[in-house]
Computed example of a mutant assay.
Amino acid sequence: MEVEAGEVRFSVVEHGPGRPVLVLHGGYVDHREAEACFEPALEGVGGLRRIYPDLPGMGRTAAPDTLRSSDDVLEALLALGDAVSGGSPYLLAGHSAGACYAQAMAARRPEQVAGLALVCPLLPGVRDVPAHRVVAGAPDLGDEEFRGYFVLHTAEMLERYERFVAPSAALVDVAAQERLGERWELTPHPGPPYAGPALVVAGRLDSTVGYAAAVEFAGSLPHATLAVVDHAGHALPHEQPAVLRALLGEWLGRVERSGR
């Protein structure tokens, strides 16, 4: 289905009725990766309407020329949140660049975000990024993109990469991503930290964004669970699905108890 939000017509996949849970994927992929990684944890929870959009310039969502920066994308995503929630509080999750947008949305509309979950978030102040290191499997398995993304080089991880990551490459508007990448840093938003139930998950071996910035960010949130997961890189949602499922379940329980 498609949802009009500001100047963007988002391509969106939905599952189930109930409270909206908006899940944002990372860069240079599409909704299929987020759906494959988050849906196993969310589908068994009653009363959740899981919403997986393609972000602008990826998947089947075009990036109009009027989008010139990440701030412009953020405004479109805020409008998308309003459109799919009808103005009521919704849950928000994201991986990588999607987590960057998610935390910015929560900062700008804290009353609209009932809970925030960030996985391997791309955040300001990225530092202490470790060198890429393979911890299991064959170092020559798969293509260069696979080998640079995963730290577990197993047949199972390669199958997930080939099903949920690699096919999206053909649908990426590279010119649009390069245009947006020239102004990728979001304008800082003044105000208190997001005070709702939060989850921050990082891979100890994440050679894309590291984990130091995520740890610092989680420390600024008054109601955050923080997990730094060993034997996981930037592809943590694929490499440690059971851990992620447990952490998301814990987060959902806190959202329910909070009454937000």
Rank of each mutant, 00 (worst) to 15 (best):
H223C: 13
S69M: 03
E7H: 12
A41F: 02
E75W: 07
S258T: 11
W184E: 13
C37H: 07
V135A: 08
G57N: 01
F146H: 06
E182D: 12
H153P: 03
G233N: 03
G94W: 08
V151C: 14
Y161K: 00
Q177H: 15
E178F: 11
Y194H: 08
E162K: 05
F150G: 01
V201N: 04
Q112M: 12
G219H: 00
G142T: 01
V215R: 15
D71C: 05
Q240K: 12
L247K: 02
G137I: 02
G44L: 04
L80R: 00
P237D: 09
G259E: 07
E4F: 11
S207E: 01
P40I: 06
R49N: 00
V255R: 02
D82S: 13
M157I: 05
V84W: 02
S168I: 05
Y28T: 15
A34G: 01
L236P: 11
E145P: 08
R160W: 10
E159Q: 14
E256R: 15
V201I: 09
D72P: 09
L122H: 12
D65G: 14
L236K: 06
L123V: 01
S88G: 14
V165R: 11
A176R: 03
A155F: 04
L122D: 12
P56Q: 01
Y161L: 03
C120H: 10
R50C: 14
G87Q: 11
R108H: 09
P193W: 10
H95G: 10
E250Y: 07
V23K: 00
P20M: 04
L22N: 06
D54K: 01
E4G: 13
P17K: 01
V243T: 15
A235N: 12
V135T: 15
A76K: 04
F150I: 04
S96G: 11
F164R: 00
R68H: 12
A104E: 14
P56M: 02
A218Y: 08
D143S: 09
E239M: 04
G115E: 05
V135P: 07
A202I: 06
L236Y: 11
G219Y: 01
V29T: 13
G142V: 05
A166N: 09
E43P: 06
E43G: 13
C37F: 07
P192C: 01
T225I: 09
A138I: 06
L48F: 06
A79R: 15
D128T: 08
P53H: 09
V215Q: 14
S207A: 15
V134D: 00
L123F: 05
V243I: 11
R32G: 10
L91C: 09
A246Y: 07
A34H: 02
G249N: 05
D65C: 09
A198S: 15
L42P: 11
R127I: 11
E216Y: 00
R32W: 08
E178D: 13
A246H: 13
Y28D: 15
A195I: 03
R257H: 14
E75V: 13
G137D: 02
L122K: 12
A102T: 05
A246F: 09
A224Y: 03
H15M: 11
Y161N: 03
V84L: 10
